[in-house]
C-alpha cells in the first residue's frame, strides 16, 4: 500500500508545471524514504531529477517499493480539478495498475477522487557522478528566469561566464549582442535577494536557451536557484522545494563544432 498526503495541492501543481514541458511521461519511484523521479527529455539533452522526502508529507506510507509510470498530461488534467488549498492524497495498492488522486477541501465538505491508469515505461536510469564544481552561483530564481527570457530573444544559445567578480550571461545573434552581468551582492536585507558566488576556478560554458527557459518553469517553487558549473560537464540548475525536497535539472553543454 502506498499513500502520500500533502496539505496543499498547489505544491503538486507547481511541481508538475516544472516538469511537464520537458517530459510527456515519467516514472515516480516510491519507497519509504519518499518519491524520486529521474527522466531525460525526449531529445536527451537534459535530465530532470525530482526528490520529495517522505518526512515532508503530512502523511506518507509506502510498504513496498513501487514504480508508477504516469502520463504527465493526464496528471495535469487531474490537478487542474483541485483548488490550491485542497489537501491532496495519492494512493495505490501494491502492484496496482492505477493510482487514485484525492482532493479534499479545507472544510472537508467537498471530496473528489480521480483514478488514473499507470503506464509501463521503459526507464533508463542514469548514474550521476559526484562533481567538484568550479563555480556555484546562488541567485534569485525570478532574476534567473528574467535573464533567460530576455536573452532567448537574441540567440538560441547563452554563454555563462563565471569569475570571482560575478557571473555574466551573454547571447549573440542577428540583432547584435546582449550581456547581463551580476555581481556578488554585498550585504542584503533579505537572503532571497542575494547573489552568492563560490568559485574555485573561472568557467565559461554555452547552453541552449530553450532548455534554460523550460527549467525556469520551476520558479514558483523557490525564491532562489543554484547553478553549478564545471568545464565540459552538464550544468546543474537546482530549485529547493521548502521542507519537501528539490528539483534538479541537468543540461548538457554546447561545444565548439
Amino acid at each position: 500500500m502506498f499513500e502520500a498526503r500533502l496539505g496543499q495541492a498547489t505544491i503538486l501543481k507547481k511541481i508538475l508545471d516544472a516538469i511537464k514541458d520537458l517530459l510527456n511521461e515519467a516514472t515516480f519511484d516510491c519507497s519509504d524514504s519518499g518519491i524520486q523521479l529521474q527522466a531525460m527529455d525526449n531529445s536527451h539533452v537534459s535530465l530532470v531529477s525530482l526528490t520529495l522526502r517522505s518526512d515532508g508529507f503530512d502523511k506518507f506510507r509506502c510498504d513496498r517499493n513501487l514504480s508508477m509510470g504516469m502520463n504527465l498530461g493526464s496528471m495535469a488534467k487531474i490537478l487542474k480539478c483541485a483548488n490550491n488549498e485542497d489537501n491532496v492524497t495519492m494512493k495505490a495498492q501494491d502492484n496496482a495498475d492505477t493510482v487514485t488522486i484525492m482532493f479534499e477541501s479545507a472544510n472537508q465538505e467537498k471530496v473528489s477522487d480521480y483514478e488514473m491508469k499507470l503506464m509501463n515505461l521503459d526507464q533508463e536510469h542514469l548514474g550521476i557522478p559526484e562533481t567538484d564544481f568550479s563555480c556555484v552561483v546562488r541567485m534569485p530564481a525570478m532574476e534567473f528566469a528574467r535573464i533567460c527570457r530576455d536573452l532567448a530573444q537574441f540567440s538560441e544559445s547563452v554563454v555563462i561566464c563565471c569569475t570571482k567578480e560575478g557571473v555574466k550571461f551573454s547571447a549573440s545573434g542577428d540583432v547584435g549582442t546582449a550581456n547581463i552581468k551580476l555581481a556578488q551582492t554585498g550585504s542584503v536585507d533579505k537572503e532571497e535577494e542575494a547573489v552568492i558566488i563560490e568559485m574555485q576556478e573561472p568557467v565559461t560554458l554555452t547552453f541552449a536557451c530553450r532548455y534554460l527557459n523550460a527549467f525556469t518553469k520551476a520558479t514558483p517553487l523557490s525564491t532562489q536557484v543554484q547553478l553549478s558549473m564545471c568545464a565540459d560537464v552538464p550544468l546543474v540548475v537546482e530549485y529547493a522545494i521548502k521542507d519537501l525536497g528539490h528539483i534538479r535539472y541537468y543540461l548538457a553543454p554546447k561545444i565548439e563544432d
Binding site: 531525460m40 536527451h44 539533452v45 537534459s46 535530465l47 533508463e124 536510469h125 542514469l126 548514474g127 550521476i128 557522478p129 544559445s157 554555452t206 541552449a208 560537464v233 552538464p234 541537468y250 543540461l251 548538457a252 553543454p253 554546447k254 561545444i255 565548439e256 563544432d257
Partner: peptide
C-alpha cells in the same frame, strides 16, 4: 558554430 551534446554521453546507464 557550437554543437549540442547529449546528456547520456555524460552519465552512465545504471
Amino acid at each position: 558554430k557550437s554543437k549540442q551534446t547529449s546528456i547520456s554521453s555524460f552519465f552512465k546507464k545504471e
